[in-house]
């Protein structure tokens, strides 16, 4: 590898544009965790997420000329979000699923989350708010899940999500509000999870 380990993203992008595939693969190494995490949370299926993540990096490589600076991570995450959506459509058509929610694979959890059938006791024992939140996120409708993930987990601006999803800012806001409310309803069903986390607001 010709470039130094701490080479900046923009420099790697310049090298990759010149045909240096190794430079681009350095970027892949840096962000594949973020990209795969987003895909698996959006798709709820490891295999589909792997396909989407791979396609995202390939699309990013081919679209490097359209990268005009800023955060390479945000840029590649936007591409990944689109690829995840396309992957859902492909699988829906291929599998003939009647609903895209059916593709959300419950047998194969996106992360090591406890099986909901284990019951509240197990979750209480683990006392893992984050894992319960992963389950609740997976239960959201796709559009709400996508909006909440991009804004609350990946810190996208509403306007970015609106452009990405071809929706108005108002629609994105509405999806986020409804998504958060559904998450809250799911989480307050297990009040013990909130212990120590919620302090009454002044």
């Amino acid at each position: 590898m010709s470039e130094a380990p701490n080479t900046g993203d923009e420099e790697l992008v310049v090298l990759a544009r010149g045909g240096d595939l190794d430079a681009f693969n350095r970027l892949v190494d840096r962000y594949q965790g973020s990209v795969y995490s987003l895909c698996v949370r959006l798709l709820g299926n490891r295999e589909a997420a792997e396909d989407a993540a791979q396609e995202a990096f390939l699309s990013a490589y081919r679209a490097l000329d359209r990268f005009h600076g800023g955060s390479f991570r945000s840029w590649v995450l936007r591409i990944a979000a689109n690829e995840a959506k396309d992957e859902l459509r492909r699988r829906r058509r291929k599998d003939g699923a009647t609903s895209l929610e059916a593709i959300f694979d419950r047998q194969e959890s996106p992360v090591e989350i406890p099986d909901p059938s284990e019951g509240a006791e197990v979750i209480v024992e683990r006392h893992d708010f984050g894992r319960a939140l992963e389950i609740a996120l997976g239960d959201l409708p796709f559009e709400q899940r996508q909006a909440v993930l991009l804004v609350d987990v990946y810190e996208f601006a509403y306007e970015e999500v609106a452009r990405l999803t071809n929706a108005s800012v108002g629609t994105v806001k509405s999806r986020i509000h409804r998504g958060r409310e559904r998450l809250r309803q799911a989480m307050i069903a297990r009040p013990e999870l909130f212990e120590g986390l919620v302090r009454p607001e002044e």
Partner: peptide
């Protein structure tokens, strides 16, 4: 006030969700 506290806790927890390790390399 309680609702605000719950939503804020959820939002903070969402921001702290751990990155999921990629099962393989996606190098091109």
């Amino acid at each position: 006030a309680r609702e605000v506290g719950e939503l804020r806790a959820i939002r903070l927890a969402a921001r702290e969700l751990p990155e999921i390790e990629a099962p393989r390399s996606f190098r091109l």
